[in-house]
Every structure is written in structure tokens, then in C-alpha cells.
Write a protein that binds this DNA or RNA. Structure first.
Lengths: 201, 201
DNA sequence: GCCATGTTGGAACGAATGGTCAAACATGGC
DNA sequence: GCCATGTTTGACCATTCGTTCCAACATGGC
């Protein structure tokens, strides 16, 4: 039971990520983390350092596995911003409907806990949110001619906000069918705004 | 120091409410609650029963003091739904900008914690969210002629979702000026949807 | 096949958690 | 003015928290 590492670091990280995802920081107790990772206390502390560092790495892993597809969706339609936004919402909704994964979104869960988070963790969360907003903004770039840049900034923030609403409501138990309605409306509105001074749909 | 109650129950409740508002359920420790209410352990337990019951009463007090104005705003323009929605968002934003009160919204904070809440608390939160949604829906009633009822259901859900996004983002540190942008866009869009088949603005 | 290296599981740590309890006390009704 | 009622204070409870540490152990290099 010793000598060389008996577990896969990424697998363990996935377990920890799920715990933080479902329970946030405060309710993610060591015992829950140990159970989910399958590690002993010694192994967890020697490979990750502690609860805070484990959360930091969990967020990074979350970004690789779940934020990456969202970024990809945003970049999938470089010259049709409205379609990119739709692809983005579709990716989010697909994940929310996935029964193999906790409800909501890890970042949203942590964002709600901001007031109680240590500074480095707070920053990681803030960066995640800012990054997503920037990626949405980038996906709207094709509309920059007809629309003023400020308007696109606003619309990007708007889409990011709607995304947050989807995940909080999902945490609170709202069925995905209703969330799809919200996303559809948001898309409908953003698409209209994007086409306002240009050609029609 | 004894005989008749030495404190005002509602004042103590306000203190507890602020703690739950800022720290949610898990991070609202007894010691924080005792400090904020100014009570001793015995007084708190004899008058409120325990942490869970205290939170339940805090939510009720929150509803009286902060949800009530939002309901009033929604009812302020019974025959101009778009204006009612605007008044609603204005009320929310005013509260978010209030420095005397914690960031975000107590209900949103608790909604994010749903997975870790005991059943009765979970229900209280779910009821709050459902109640707000119903009130928004009621404010849209004047548009029921020209617009199908289902469409108004969707728009009400949509407005409630945007409200959630405002409070989560606020928790994460987004400045109120940017949140106002989000609310403006949502209002702009909802107003357009409400006027689509009827007369113009 | 031995030894240094590094992993593992669990015992143990102090601090903090939510909650209980009883002794000390002030008040209102008689 | 006395006594029953009910409040307050703070010591105390078991449990759980995140973390540290070490003895037992398996492995890879020589």
C-alpha cells in the first residue's frame, strides 16, 4: 500500500471537484473530500497541500473540462455572433441536464460564497467570471462594424449574467426545460439587438 | 439583568438576518449570530429555538422588509407592465447600492446552498422564489389580451432570472453601475416583447 | 537482496462547531 | 415585601472541523 502513488491524481481531483461543486467551500468537509477522492489524509495533504489549494486545482480542472467546451461553442461561429451565443447557451443547458454531474456550476456556487472566501480563492473565482465575460465579448466581435463597441460590451455582460441566472436557478431546483425558456428568450433578445442596425435575420 | 426580556426581538432578528445574508447558512456560525444579535446563548435558544428556526424567521423578516418593496413596485403600475418591471428592477438596484445592507440577496445566497439545506429551509427558499415569480407574472396581467398567457409566463420567469443574475453578480463583486446595464437591457427587451403585437411605446 | 525514497493509513492535535443546562438574578402579581 | 415566573450568563457537552505527524510499508536503484 505504499512506495509508488496508488491513485491517479486527475481522478482524485475529479472527485474533489464534484464535492466542491455540489457543496461549495464551507460544506465541503475534509471527510467528504476524502471519501470522494478515495485518499487518506496523508496522501491528500502531501499531494495537494490543503483544502484551499485543492479547491484552486479543482477550479482549474473545472475550467479544462467544462469551461473549455463553452469557450469552444463561443468560437464555433466566428462570423455569426447570435449563433455563437446560442451555441454557448446550448452547451450550458446540456451540462445542466447531465445527471452525472452536480447541479448548477462550480463557479457560481463559489461566487455566492465570495464574502467568506480567502483572498486567493476569491481572485480565482473573479478571474473565471471575468474570463467568461471576455470570451463572450470576443464572440461578438463580428458585429463590431454596425454596432458600437460599448453596446457589445453591454450585451456580453448581459449574456454572462443570464448564464449565471441559469445556474443559480438550477441550484434552486428549477427544471432544465424552464431554464431553456430563459435561454431562448435571452438569445431571441440578443439576436435582435445584434441585427438592429444591420441586415435582418 | 433578568426578569423581563432585555432586548427587542425584531432588532435581534435584524442582526441575525444580516449575518445569514452575508454569510449564508453554513458560515453563519453561532458566535457570529450571538455577536450580531447581542444575545447570550440561552436567550437566543429560548426565544428562537436554534439556528434553523432563526434562519426561518430571518427569511420571513427579510420578506417583510425587502421583498415587500419589490412587490409594491410590481403593483405600482397595474396597467403598464413594462413600467412595473422597470420599477421592480429599480427597487432591486437601489437595495444593491445600499451600503448599510450586505451585498446580494438573502434568498439568492440560500438558493445557492440548496443542496446542503434541511428540508424545511429548502422549502422556504423555494417558496420565496416561486412567490416572486408569481408576483412578476401578476404584474404582467395587463398584457394578457394581446399576448398569449404562456408568453407572459415565460417573460415573468425571465425577469425573475435576471433578478437572480443581478444578485449573484453583485455577490461576486460586480459594481452596481454594470448591474444597471444588465437591468436596462432586460427591461428594454421585455418592454419590446410586451409591445410586439400591441401599440408602440 | 538491501537500503534510501517516498506513500499510506490512522492516531492525535487544538480550535471551533451547534446545543444544553443550571445557578444567579430581576421583575410583576399578590 | 415575598414568591413564583421567566431571563440571563457562562460553564459545559459531544462532535466535527482542518491539519500535523509518525510508524508501517511498498517500491526502484544499486
Amino acid at each position: 500500500m505504499a512506495g509508488r502513488k496508488q491513485f491517479d491524481v486527475d481522478t482524485a481531483l475529479d472527485g474533489a471537484m464534484h464535492v466542491f461543486w455540489e457543496h461549495g467551500y464551507a460544506e465541503a468537509s475534509l471527510s467528504r473530500l476524502l471519501a470522494a477522492t478515495g485518499l487518506g489524509r496523508g496522501s491528500l495533504y502531501s499531494t495537494f497541500g490543503g483544502k484551499d489549494e485543492l479547491l484552486e486545482r479543482s477550479v482549474r480542472r473545472y475550467a479544462e473540462r467544462f469551461a473549455a467546451p463553452m469557450s469552444a461553442a463561443l468560437r464555433s461561429q466566428p462570423d455569426d455572433p447570435a449563433a455563437a451565443v446560442r451555441a454557448f447557451f446550448d452547451t450550458v443547458l446540456t451540462r445542466l441536464a447531465d445527471p452525472d454531474v452536480p447541479a448548477g456550476c462550480l463557479i457560481t456556487r463559489l461566487a455566492a460564497e465570495t464574502a467568506d472566501l480567502a483572498d486567493p480563492l476569491r481572485e480565482v473565482v473573479a478571474e473565471s467570471l471575468a474570463g467568461q465575460r471576455a470570451e463572450i465579448r470576443a464572440a461578438l466581435r463580428a458585429a463590431e462594424g454596425p454596432l458600437p463597441a460599448e453596446r457589445l460590451d453591454d450585451l456580453a455582460l448581459y449574456a454572462a449574467a443570464v448564464n449565471q441566472s441559469l445556474t443559480v436557478l438550477h441550484l434552486a431546483g428549477t427544471p432544465v426545460t424552464e431554464l431553456r425558456t430563459v435561454a431562448d428568450l435571452a438569445h431571441e433578445h440578443i439576436a435582435a439587438a445584434l441585427h438592429t442596425p444591420g441586415r435582418a435575420e
